[in-house]
Design a protein around this nucleic acid. Sequence first.
DNA 1: GACAACTCGTACAACAGTGTTCGGGTTACC
DNA 2: GGTAACCCGAACACTGTTGTACGAGTTGTC
Lengths: 201, 201
Amino acid sequence: MAQQHTEGPPVRRADARQNVDRILEAAITCLGRDAHATMGEIAATAGLGRVTVYGHFSSREALVEAALTRLLDQGDAALADLDLTGDPRAALRTLIEASWLLTARAGAVLESALETLPPGRVQELHAKPARRAEALIRRGRRDGVLRSDLPVDWMVGVLHHVMKGAAADVTQGRLAANDAPRLIAETLLPAFAPPGGPADR
Amino acid sequence: MAQQHTEGPPVRRADARQNVDRILEAAITCLGRDAHATMGEIAATAGLGRVTVYGHFSSREALVEAALTRLLDQGDAALADLDLTGDPRAALRTLIEASWLLTARAGAVLESALETLPPGRVQELHAKPARRAEALIRRGRRDGVLRSDLPVDWMVGVLHHVMKGAAADVTQGRLAANDAPRLIAETLLPAFAPPGGPADR
DNA sequence: GACAACTCGTACAACAGTGTTCGGGTTACC
DNA sequence: GGTAACCCGAACACTGTTGTACGAGTTGTC
């Protein structure tokens, strides 16, 4: 909207902006635990009243979208700092380690978004982080250190599904959170290696 | 002596039993598409009235459990017919092909059950089919054709998560159903191969 | 053919969640 | 210190779903 200093949309007060932050963090926490978390729960987690939340987000749908957007932006920012210029296989390992925590938190939020947001909107928001993994895999294929006999989209999907599944295992107590990144990497690296030779050149 | 054994429902009428069947199939179909399918939708899909469904299942929870049980029984029966005595890697391929359709249908039903059934009940029902894959993987590890450097539970989980993820991709139009089994097998076989594998080096 | 089993549709109560309204209290900011 | 922005809690209407009740119609089975 117009941010002209014409006193129409005046400056938000400091505590209000901070509360928006609190609400988004609470939403990510609650929706991460339970994709069907209530506005009341989220508000309580944020330490605010339910009505106050509606003062900042016009609907539950708006809040879910905002939470997912923040989560994906956080993740994309974290991933942007990584050095992925070396061996794509080592880079893939780095990517997995870094995005593990993100995916673990985003899992149920994404699920919640899939239910409440219009179809396609989620994919749209999720496009940027996914593109990062996709670009990495494409480079590895060009360099011959990753297999090229499977569709790129499929490989990106497998990466995503395994991480999401591991996150579910952790929340259900079937897997220790500390072990997850290593297991994922140990499993997916050979899965993505070229069929002919796993040579380390 | 009059053998007046007091049966609650002495003899169910034929059409009633057939309707129970219809309801369960409808439940599997609807819950497979949408884990939040309502009793009304399920009844309509079965071609029956909503009240009639309550005549056979006392609650939504009971219906979900019955549907999941039938699905898992069907799947376990189908898997029991497979010949898995040969090379465990070929057997794994066979297992994937066979259980793909089952998993695709069961995916959302399982999700629905996780929400409505008491925690642990799902795992209990799911134990038998999971044990089949687990036994297969264990045998492959003993024979040295599958890797032993990862926990068995993790490998079973990966198998499950990738199939479930592929099912989600199919329902969202990102993947052709016909391609799925091949892609899954091509991806997981190298992932499960021993590190210094027989065909390598 | 008669009876019981089964089904149908509508209607109802109960419950949970969303989104809004209102009046009164608190607090940041100039 | 004054004002407007902000927060609070309770109350309300609305929606959708579950589970139950009733009366009447239909159909399998003996």
